[in-house]
Structures are given as C-alpha cells and as structure tokens.
Design a protein around this nucleic acid. Structure first.
Lengths: 197, 197
DNA sequence: GCACAATAATGCATACTGTGCAATATTTGC
DNA sequence: GCAAATATTGCACAGTATGCATTATTGTGC
C-alpha cells in the first residue's frame, strides 16, 4: 500500500492529488457540471489526455483514490479470534492510521457535497467499495454463505464511517484516532433502534 | 402516486417501461458499454432524442423509476405511536404493495448486475434515494437532530431490502408480502452482530 | 365533431466525455 | 551514458447529453 519511494511513484501520487485538488476547487468555484475535464487538466498542469490516465472519469477525480486494507491487516484479521465487530473496527483503525488522511481535502469534498448533492451517489459508490472490502474481511471469518449478512454489517459500518468522517473533517479538535470510537458509538445507537425487531 | 388514468399518462408509463426493458435486454445481450442510447431508442420504438426525455441518462434507464411513499402513508406514519422500526417496516409494506412489482424486470436487473458488476454503484445510488426517503420518514418522528442516526438505520433497512428483493426475484414461490418479513429477519441478524458493540 | 391549448416527440446543431493508438518525452537500472 | 520501461501527449473518433425550434398528438370546451 505505502508506495515504494521511487521518484516516479512519488510524482504519480503528487499528480493524482494535484488533479483531485484542481477538480474540487474548480467544482466549488464554478459548479461541477460547468467544469470540464480540460479545465481540470489545465489547472493541474497536465494535458487533457493525461487526466484520463489518472482517473477513469470526472467523477473519480472528485472522490480520489480510497485506501484499502494492506495484506498485513488482512492476515492479522484472519488469524484473530476476537469478536467479529471488534476486530473489524480494529482493522479499520489500522487502515485509517496508514491512510495519511488529509483534513483539508476532506473539507473540500464535504463542502462540495453540500453544494452539489447530486454528487452524493458518486460518493456513496466509493463508500460501497470500502464496504465491500469490509464484507470480504468478514466473510473470511463467517464463510461465503454468510456474505449477505456480512455485507449488511459492512454497509452499516462504512456508512457510520462516512458520517464520522464528515464530523472529523469539520472539527479540527477531533483526533484521527477517535474516529473509530465515534463509529462504535454510532453502531451502538443503531443497535438501539434494532432492539425493537 | 398512482397515475391519473388519462391516456397520456398510461402511454407515458408504458413507454418508460418499454425503454427500460429495451435497455436491459440489449445490455444483457451485447454488454452494457457496447449498447448505445441510439440502439435502445430504436428497440423501444422511439427517437434517440426522446430517450432523454424519459431518462436523464443511460444509467437511469437500466434502473428505471423507483417507487416513493405516497402522502397517505407519510401521514399515517407521522400520526402513529408504534415503535419506530416496526412502523417503518409497515410503511415499507404499503410502498411495496402499491408499487406493482414486476418480477420479470427484477430478474433482468439481477442478471445484468451479475454479468456487469461495474453497474452496482448505479444500483446502489438508486437504493440510496429510497434510503433517504426512509430517513426522512424517521426524521419526522425523531427530529432533525437525529438525522444521521436516522440515515444509518434507513441505510440498513434499504440494504436489507435490496438483498431481499434479489431473493424474491429469483424465487417464484416467494410472495410479495413476505418481503418485509425477510427484511425484519435480516435486521435481526444484523442486531446480533452489533450486540458485541 | 371541431378548433384551440397543452403536452409530447422529433430533428438538428453542438459541447463534452472517454478511448485507442502512435509518437514523444522522462525515468530507471545497468 | 544508454537501452528498456514507463509516462505523457496529440489526434482522431464514437458516444453522451442538452438546447432549441418544429412537428405531431392528446386533452378540453364548445
């Protein structure tokens, strides 16, 4: 996951972030629909064609590249014998800790989503991919038969994460490490609602 | 919600379904990416331009138009003093009962999603809109402050619905009315996982 | 029925998205 | 430095989606 620190890789990472930042700031200033990929490329200092070497489409540039669980975490999870939910949250903690979160970028995303709610599905599409990763993790312990249940749990966790992420982005006093704690609290609330089932 | 039965409205509904059916069958036969909006329009017997009068884009034509809660149901929900989750499920039951579900169409959608998983985000985008409706409903009882919690619950419900819908589509023996019962069972399982929180 | 208003369908022009491919430039490892 | 690997770019092109003007169809009041 952490990039081999060759120059090429560092530049690649830098360019992908330049593009995302350009896409976000332009969309905030001019409105997402009005911004063209050509403008974004110009702002990011690359050619229009190169834009599509980095992101499959305009949407993807807004969202950026989501982190994924590294092999060590997956291996640890498989081997652990703790409670499922607790271990999932621990894995999430690792993920977030290694993801070097950028609060500024997160704020831009949140502001853009406030301003252009039509982009929410794109955001939730990306969130779903994270949910799928969590579901995969859970399935390694529950077995393939339980995939639908694993997905339901994973969706709840990833949705709680999205909520919490928003809170974190807008509260400079909130530490990264408390994100998972807030997620746990939210899931507790959810459990309360489901108690009635 | 149910259309005034003027001829114009019936034709409109018919055409929108023709388009969706055309989009689904062509996508299943040729692959979603290979199918053009022009082909879909031809198959549905309308002009290419008219396609976009019915659906905002190609994606929307695949998913079709999701049902929404009618005013009566919303009013009933507001006034009811039952348990939140139970009442939400009751509202969902009304919705499904009035939605005249088309099992054949649902099967086509499920087969397409199996064949082209890259379409899943589109599907979940539409599911999110249903989730938002459920969240709105819940908020009328919990108050605006609890919206994040309401959304979390609503997402869980709508995800369970999507699961169940798939099961229902592929099982001719399963009745429409049992959909909500299966949803309730799935939420119970979720509660079990969250018990550990 | 008929005429007229409202609504829907269509054709056309046009801007933008996204891809394939070939050519050029940059980085890397030796 | 030099050759191989990789990245960037330009260009051509198919497809998406929108606005607008025109034509066709449906609904309404008489």
């Amino acid at each position: 996951m952490t990039p081999r620190s060759t120059l090429r890789d560092r530049r690649r990472l830098q360019t992908s972030r330049d593009i995302q930042r350009a896409a976000l700031t332009l969309a905030l200033r001019l409105g997402y629909d009005s911004v063209t990929t050509e403008q974004i490329a110009a702002e990011a200092g690359i050619s229009p064609r190169t834009f599509f070497n980095y992101y499959l489409n305009k949407d993807a540039a807004i969202i950026g590249t989501a982190p994924s669980f590294d092999d060590d975490t997956v291996a640890w999870f498989r081997a652990s014998s703790g409670l499922l939910l607790g271990d999932l949250l621990k894995a999430l903690r690792h993920l977030l800790c290694h993801a070097d979160l950028d609060r500024g970028m997160s704020q831009l995303i949140n502001r853009l989503l406030d301003q252009s709610p039509e982009l929410l599905p794109i955001f939730y599409g990306s969130l779903k991919r994270l949910g799928d990763q969590i579901a995969d993790l859970a399935v390694t312990r529950l077995g393939e038969d339980a995939r639908p249940d694993a997905e339901l749990l994973a969706q709840a966790i990833s949705h709680a994460l999205a909520d919490t992420f928003r809170i974190w982005a807008n509260d400079d006093a909130m530490s990264e490490s408390s994100i998972v704690d807030v997620i746990a609290a939210k899931l507790k609330t959810l459990r309360g609602f489901l108690e009635q089932a």
